[in-house]
Simulated assay, not measured.
Amino acid sequence: MTSALAPLQDGGTLAFTETGAGAPLVLISGLGGLASFWKDFASVCAGHFRVITYDHRGVGRSSPLDGSTSIAAMCDDLIGLLDHLGIEQAMILGHSTGGAIAQRLAIDNPQRLSRLVLSATFARPCAYMERLFAGRIEILDRLGVDAYRRHAVTLLNAPYWLAENDARVTAELTGGAPATERDAATIRARIKAVLGHGVDESLDTIACPARIVVAADDIVTPPYHSERLAHAIPGAELAVLPRGGHYAMRAEPALYRDAVLDFLRG
């Protein structure tokens, strides 16, 4: 595994990791934006592909986020990373917010994708999602980052998995660096970018092979969002896992692996 910083045209940098060999596969994290989100699944994929993960701007070891952002801006950062690595075309797997970034890439730069996996994501927030994320911002603003993160644990993880792994989650919540105002500002800006995403009218232009994956018990991006994506993207396949929550790759790694790897390997 190698880790490095990719310079971007505006002077920023993205921290990225590479592991494995073969056709390039980029795994795009969700709202948290950390490359480490994919650690276990990247290890599985590394036996088949050259796997690239990265910290989004404002997150982890990447350069800070100053001011607002958008899904389009996050997509531009991804293109900058691909250019730095000399990758003209890659397989893309985007989860949640990462799936929104992947949609933007597939619509605006179709030549950069060979295959597309959209994981627990959406083409446009519905009223339910708008209320959910407005509530998350309210928790962030009134109670702070630590309370926001504690609340997120109950949304993102399947209840049965959380019940069995409570000590692990507690260790993760308490083991990081203290939260800062910059962290809060970055989270707020990224949530607003999520709420500003909307490409449903352009999904029929996505031409590469696509698979949509979601768990039946996902309460952050409910399955009907994935059903709409699969209906709108020509030829897209839909895989609904029986359970797993929003983090199905964590709660049901074997089910998630089987739903994704066979498609990526063609």
Rank of each mutant, 00 (worst) to 15 (best):
L8I: 04
Q9M: 09
Q9H: 07
G11E: 01
G12H: 05
G12N: 06
T13E: 07
T13V: 10
A15E: 03
A15N: 04
F16A: 00
T17L: 10
A21P: 00
V26D: 01
I28T: 06
I28D: 00
I28A: 06
S29A: 15
G33T: 00
G33M: 04
A35W: 08
S36R: 15
K39M: 10
A42N: 06
V44T: 10
F49K: 02
R50Y: 07
R50G: 12
V51A: 04
D55M: 12
D55K: 12
S63G: 09
D66L: 15
G67H: 10
G67V: 05
G67C: 11
G67D: 02
S68M: 11
T69L: 08
A72P: 00
A73L: 14
M74T: 02
D77G: 09
L78I: 11
L81T: 05
L82H: 08
D83E: 12
D83K: 12
L85Y: 10
I87T: 06
E88H: 13
L93W: 04
G94E: 04
G94R: 03
H95T: 07
H95A: 13
G98F: 02
A100I: 01
L105H: 03
A106C: 09
Q111C: 11
L113E: 01
S114V: 07
L116A: 03
V117F: 00
V117P: 00
T121Y: 02
T121K: 02
A123Q: 02
Y128K: 06
Y128T: 01
M129D: 00
M129A: 06
M129Y: 01
M129P: 00
L132E: 00
G135R: 09
I137V: 11
E138P: 01
I139W: 05
D141G: 07
R142E: 14
Y148P: 03
Y148K: 12
R149L: 15
V153L: 12
T154A: 15
N157C: 14
E164G: 11
E164A: 15
D166K: 14
T170I: 12
E172S: 14
E172Y: 15
L173M: 13
A179R: 10
D183H: 13
A184G: 06
A185S: 10
T186I: 09
I187A: 05
I187P: 00
I191F: 04
A193K: 00
D204N: 14
T205R: 15
C208Q: 10
C208V: 15
R211P: 02
I212R: 01
V214A: 07
A216Q: 14
A216G: 07
V220R: 05
T221N: 04
P222D: 04
P222N: 03
Y224I: 08
R228H: 09
A230F: 06
A230R: 01
A232T: 09
E237I: 11
L238K: 05
L241H: 07
R250V: 15
E252C: 14
P253G: 09
A254C: 08
L255M: 13
Y256C: 03
A259D: 03
V260W: 01
L261A: 06
D262F: 09
R265A: 07
R265E: 11
